[in-house]
């Protein structure tokens, strides 16, 4: 329905969102993120081959695929986080709201304010819980007064479903939190500056089942306001949280589809093999 594969090459048609897109939004919108023919290189080795994909606003899209398939690399091209790795190169277009973020002269700092990211391993700063969430607000000079600052911090912690657990110890070190709490703190930190898109790189891979389910509930709530892209190696998780799913293999995008269709009747043989556990 959304994507139809015409050849075995990973060239796909632009998703047609004619029929009801799985969003709460009634109004049709431009794709929030659109990627066209994106290649990516680590030095001389090519990690992504001609990826084209559109991500509509306010949905959750999951990237699945075996380790090393390029799904994390692709995620990191969306906020140019790969720039920090030496000797890497991206070719093609990545459009956020229609603006190519790879053209010369792009303000990458501003880009990352608008496209937030949560990492696989939680990485709170060695500061207090409060200061972790306030960090993005402070550097972006978002708030004018200290009461506004604490208001935004509280809201972000509430949005990340962490407020009740930490409200009495905002001054204690973020490193004193449990693994699951640390990850939710990192989500709160990212939410505080109200990005338009939130990228999540296997956010629950290091967490126990209870913490994982909290994160998943959270993702479900967050899509009311944010466009969320989540990388996961866990297909059940993709099925639980996402509206659309993209399947990557060996640096190529094999299929994009609604999550429901992807896990019941995928278009591609390779997708089916992967989902039914025949490889990977």
């Amino acid at each position: 329905m959304l994507a139809s594969m015409q050849t075995a090459t990973p060239k796909i048609e632009v998703p047609q969102r004619k029929s009801e897109a799985p969003t709460t939004e009634d109004q049709r919108r431009e794709a929030k993120v659109a990627v066209r023919d994106l290649d990516f290189f680590y030095g001389k080795s090519q990690a992504l081959h001609g990826i084209s994909l559109e991500i509509p606003e306010r949905i959750v899209m999951a990237f699945i695929g075996p380790s090393g398939c390029g799904k994390s690399t692709f995620l990191r091209t969306l906020n140019r986080m790969n720039d920090v790795i030496p000797n890497t190169r991206a070719q093609g277009e990545v459009l956020i709201d229609g603006h190519d973020i790879y053209i010369a002269g792009t303000d990458v700092v501003e880009l990352r304010r608008r496209v937030g990211m949560v990492f696989q391993k939680s990485n709170p700063f060695p500061k207090s819980i409060f200061e972790n969430v306030a960090y993005g607000l402070r550097i972006n000079r978002v708030t004018k007064s200290s009461s506004e600052l604490s208001g935004r911090v509280e809201q972000a912690l509430k949005d990340a479903a962490l407020w009740e657990e930490v409200k009495d110890r905002l001054k204690s070190s973020a490193l004193s939190l449990s693994g699951g709490q640390q990850q939710r703190l990192c989500i709160a930190r990212a939410l505080a500056i109200r990005p338009e898109v939130l990228l999540m790189d296997e956010p629950a891979s290091a967490l126990d089942p209870i913490a994982t389910s909290k994160i998943e509930e959270l993702i479900f709530d967050l899509k009311k306001h944010y466009t969320i892209v989540i990388v996961t190696h866990n297909m059940q998780q993709a099925a639980r949280v996402s509206d659309q799913t993209a399947f990557f293999l060996l640096g190529k995008l094999i299929e994009v589809n609604t999550t429901e269709k992807m896990f019941t009747a995928p278009n591609e043989r390779l997708t089916e093999d992967y989902i039914t556990g025949r490889f990977g």
Binding site: E110, R113, F119, P126
Partner: peptide
């Protein structure tokens, strides 16, 4: 200093100089 700390700050839209002075050097 773990690389993830730098990435965490950069992902919040912090410019490199603020990451270095505010996060990496203190760590």
């Amino acid at each position: 200093v773990p690389h993830s700390l730098r990435e965490g700050a950069l992902a919040l839209g912090a410019p490199q100089w603020r990451v270095t002075l505010g996060v990496v050097l203190p760590a």
